[in-house]
Amino acid sequence: MAENFVCVRIQSMNGVNINQFQFEYDLTWMAFFQNAGGRTYVRYGGREDHDPETHLSQKSLLRVMRQALYLHKQNNVQPDNLYEPVAKTVRTPEDIPTMKKMMAKRKESCIHCHDVKVAQLRHLRDMGQLKKEMVFTYPSPSHLGIQLDPDVQYKVKHVEADSPAKAAGVQEGDLIRTVGGQRVLTLADMSRVLELAPKTGTLNLGIERNTSKVSAKLSLPNEWRKSNDPSWRSSTGILGPSSGFWGAKANANQRKQLGLGDGDLAVRVTFLWGKWTKQAGIRNGDYVISIDGQKTDMTIRQLQAYLHLNRNWGDKIDLIIRRGGKDLNVSMQFPDKPLN
């Protein structure tokens, strides 16, 4: 199938026109099917929180490739410049004011996808305009209760109970043909439309159900973009303070020795870098069993993301550390402002 395409592999964001290629920069893989003029037929990529490959499959990719070839024969590009911009100007990651300083600290010159988002958020932070919610870009339709079939990504596999999709009458097996008037074939197409959807309001779906065409009006509730586990997003680190330590979830044997269950927080500290962490008295080998009142099981990435999203620089939090069979209550005072 690939021989029908000019296969272009972009391995770094250096010099890429980000006025044209707007996508979820927290991802590590993303694809566009385009004509020779750079107009897009369909996007492919994206993920749910719990798994980076929920919607990446050979079957779905082959299907989308066939659809892209069909659209190409008809020169049927996405018509709406709002969703698939025709870039009249070139702007690269190097033009983001904070990028130069970021890259000066690197040994290698590769600008990664996530660097673009981090630099943009950092710039907003420098300007005093950063809001934590800004990290939740390119939301999945699952935020509105629609779980898409991974292989046929415009087909509804499941509708969550008590969700906006359920309330709008979306049904399992529905084929979602348009969202907000835009043709959608994939999760990535839908996430692109959702990225530009309002904070609250409604969004129209064009649906094919059996042989009928129906429409549904999705309500967008407050904070609908937020997801439960954004720990896969590298960009959360810009939003708030970190623990100043790295670690690993305790394994089954360690939990047994600690007397903790699978659902309990137990992160073993393996590396310390925060001055504030050392001042709190935390050491390598300690087990963190409570942080800021959170006692449920988390990975170290989830623990960091929790702090990024829920705490601010200058805050003081309490932790319980288990060391040598004893529990120690410690307080940690974050620096007043970001270190970089």
Binding site: N4, V6, C7, R9, I10, T28, A31, F32, A36, C113
Partner: peptide, 23 residues
């Protein structure tokens, strides 16, 4: 990418543009 566009024009084939960090 610009090479890809040129080849796409010359061959009439659509582009499959993948963003993938390899480092």
């Amino acid at each position: 990418y610009e090479d890809g566009k040129r080849i796409s024009r010359e061959t009439g084939r659509p582009m499959f543009v993948v963003f993938r960090c390899e480092r």
